[in-house]
């Protein structure tokens, strides 16, 4: 297998090469683009990471516990042990992501130092700063952030996020909030069409988003960065539904390793994302997977137990 080149010695010799630029927006957003059409899976151990890679995951998210367990356990949820993250980095050849608390710059720096390929500044962990997110432009590592609406999404992109995912409601196994957030973001972009320049400027003020990003989203007819689905996706059909709603790819949290047969579920969700518009293929893919994660319906969830309101 190909050994990691390691940042050290090679990076130094690279720096002599003329015009080499690292950590630019193009390099960060480019990384996110390579994940499109793929499934990113939450994993807790190197063994789980290997199962995810073998099933065809495009990346894994290294965590201390899957969101459903974080939710059950309560208390303060923090970045995973860097030693544990490093073990996962060493186990697989696909990219490894890690979660930092919202506004916790030091956790993000530690994850970057460990070598994670993307940092998720995530509402699933307990926020460290109730006013500010991390200034993500200062990092070489690209970031992904959650959003419920266009204002949140564009604020995060303005702070330097290279990828946006729906917040959904993590750890519930109920897809309805992910659908709601994706519809809200796309609906707002659709409404921008036909608005004049000054109307878009006024709209930017209303949703508290950088005006230039409102213009960019309007011209592109979509978010200017890759837009994944996350939060409550538990089955191949859920993943296909989010692709139908024009997501670029899928994060699956507790849905895989909370299922009865994680290997079969992981494999099926990867195939469902490729065949999202083929009902017969989806019927075959979805059959005989065993029990999915149990889940908790969002409608029964008290407001104070929802994670999605963190970090707007």
């Amino acid at each position: 297998m190909s050994e990691e080149t390691g940042a050290g010695a090679d990076a130094d010799s690279d720096l002599d090469l003329e015009g080499l630029r690292r950590g630019t927006d193009l390099v960060k957003r480019g990384f996110a683009r390579m994940q499109k059409g793929g499934v990113i899976m939450d994993v807790v151990t190197p063994e789980q990471a290997r199962i995810a890679e073998d099933a065809g995951a495009v990346a894994v998210m290294a965590l201390e516990a899957v969101p459903a367990d974080i939710r059950k356990r309560g208390g303060v949820a923090r970045m995973a042990d860097p030693g544990q993250v490093r073990e996962i980095v060493e186990e697989v050849s696909i990219p490894v992501m890690g979660k930092s608390r919202i506004g916790h710059r030091k956790e993000a720096e530690i994850l970057e130092a460990v070598g994670v390929d993307m940092i998720d500044e995530s509402e699933v962990l307990t926020p460290a700063d109730d006013a500010y997110h991390i200034d993500k432009r200062e990092f070489t590592a690209p970031f992904v952030c959650g959003a419920r609406d266009l204002g949140e999404a564009l604020r995060r992109i303005g702070e330097g996020a290279a990828m946006i995912r729906t917040k959904g409601e993590a750890g519930t196994g109920d897809v309805n909030q992910a659908v709601h957030h994706q519809r809200t973001i796309r609906g707002a972009i659709a409404e921008l069409e036909g608005k004049s320049h000054e109307e878009r400027e006024a709209y930017a003020r209303e949703i508290e988003a950088p005006a230039e990003l409102v213009h960019e989203a309007s011209e592109m007819g979509r978010l200017p960065v890759v837009n994944f689905a996350a939060g409550g996706i538990a089955t191949p059909a859920d993943a296909a539904l989010m692709m139908h709603h024009q997501c670029d790819g899928i994060f699956v949290g507790s849905g895989i390793f909370g299922a009865e047969n994680p290997k079969a579920m992981a494999d099926a969700i990867v195939r469902a994302v490729n065949s999202w518009d083929d009902p017969e293929a989806l019927a075959e893919i979805s059959a005989g997977l065993g029990k999915g994660m149990r889940g908790d319906a969002n409608v029964d969830l008290p407001e104070e137990e929802k994670l999605q309101g963190r970090g707007v």
Binding site: A11, E18, R22, L26, D117
Partner: peptide, 9 residues
């Protein structure tokens, strides 16, 4: 290398 070593030139 990893993503932190990714570059344009």
């Amino acid at each position: 290398g990893r993503q932190r070593d990714s570059f344009e030139a």
